[in-house]
């Protein structure tokens, strides 16, 4: 009996590296098929020495494929295991391989999108942005390094995991773990989004609701100012003590809303946009609409 052909760690690393370019030839016809075929080439070269087998393998990996680019890694791992068995004579046909790919890509994309695009990127992005807005270089560096370490680590270890457990991965993932990861990611995501809406969606209404005259004792007495540092200090002390600079105290509509809860308008706006999106209004239209509202708001002096 001929010696078993196995994929070495080096082969698997080559596949994993190429797998990063999965979406390069993304197309409306078969989506990620070209990138998938490109990624698996090192394995095909190793497993099938003869030309006909190589052609057959390349053709079967040019079939339709589309999932989230990172969670594609466990699918790749399983496919590598199956191709290896097949090259060693196991009766695995094209349908079985395509079936596993298609069977895994759907549910896994359902995990990848919320976990990476809607939990990790908003969180790391917001973290980075909060440093960056004050011009701190740490923000971009933190985002870039953390993201790529997590991403490549995830891709390599899940591919290895898929390769080791082979076809049993599909059962394993459907046994609750997948659902738990999705749910955990959604909970964390919703929590953080709630926080971000409060912190970073800014709407300020400027209309003045009421103007009340300040009590005489609460107004800083400017009459003592004679240009010397000492009198300036005296005024600043009064200001620090909470005295007002003006004769009247005005309350804006925003102050009233803030006393209900800060960010109330922001959350209302966000929920309204959620509803619009559900009604299939394009995000681009909404964005342009918000700018128009902003301009009108400034022109009419209410924002």
């Amino acid at each position: 009996m001929a010696e078993k052909i196995v994929l070495s760690k080096k082969d698997r690393m080559a596949v994993c590296w190429r797998h990063q370019f999965l979406q390069g030839s993304w197309n409306y016809e078969r989506m990620q098929n070209g990138g998938w075929c490109y990624s698996i080439i090192p394995a095909i070269k190793k497993l099938y020495p003869n030309k006909e087998d190589q052609i057959a393998a390349l053709k079967r990996h040019m079939e339709f494929y589309n999932t989230h680019p990172y969670v594609s890694s466990p699918v790749m791992g399983v496919t590598l295991a199956m191709e290896e068995e097949r090259a060693n004579g196991a009766p695995i046909d094209d349908v079985a391989i395509q079936g596993v790919k298609v069977g895994m890509m759907g549910p896994l994309a359902g995990v990848g999108d919320p976990a990476f695009w809607f939990t990790m990127r908003p969180i790391l992005g917001a973290l980075g942005a909060s440093f960056a807005m004050s011009g701190n270089i740490l923000g971009p560096i933190l985002f870039f390094v953390l993201w790529n370490v997590i991403r490549y680590g995830f891709m390599w270890y899940t591919q290895e995991f898929g390769y080791k457990v082979g076809t049993s991965i599909t059962q394993d993932l459907s046994g609750g773990l997948l659902g738990k990861i999705t749910q955990g990611a959604s909970i964390l995501g919703m929590f953080v989004i709630g926080a971000l809406v409060q912190r970073w969606v800014s709407i300020t209404l400027t209309p003045v609701v009421s103007t009340v005259a300040n009590d005489e004792v609460n107004i800083i007495d400017f009459s003592t100012f004679d240009g010397s540092g000492e009198s300036l200090r005296d005024i600043l002390v009064q200001y620090d003590g909470g005295k007002s600079l003006y004769d009247t105290r005005s309350t804006t509509l925003q102050d009233n809303l803030n006393s209900l809860t800060p960010g109330l308008l922001a959350v209302c706006l966000t929920l309204f946009i959620c509803w619009l999106l559900k009604k299939n209004v394009s995000p681009i239209v909404i964005i342009i609409g918000l700018f128009i509202v902003g301009i009108i708001g400034v022109l009419c002096n209410f924002m």
């Binding site: 919703m190 989004i193 969606v201 300020t204 706006l269 959620c274 700018f291 902003g294 301009i295 708001g297």
Partner: peptide, 24 residues
């Protein structure tokens, strides 16, 4: 100025997309 005010609200669109994806 209007663009700045609008820009303050635009972030809500991104958040809304995320919420629609994850809300249950």
């Amino acid at each position: 100025d209007g663009m700045t005010v609008g820009g303050g609200m635009v972030a809500a669109v991104g958040y809304a997309m995320v919420i629609n994806m994850m809300a249950t």
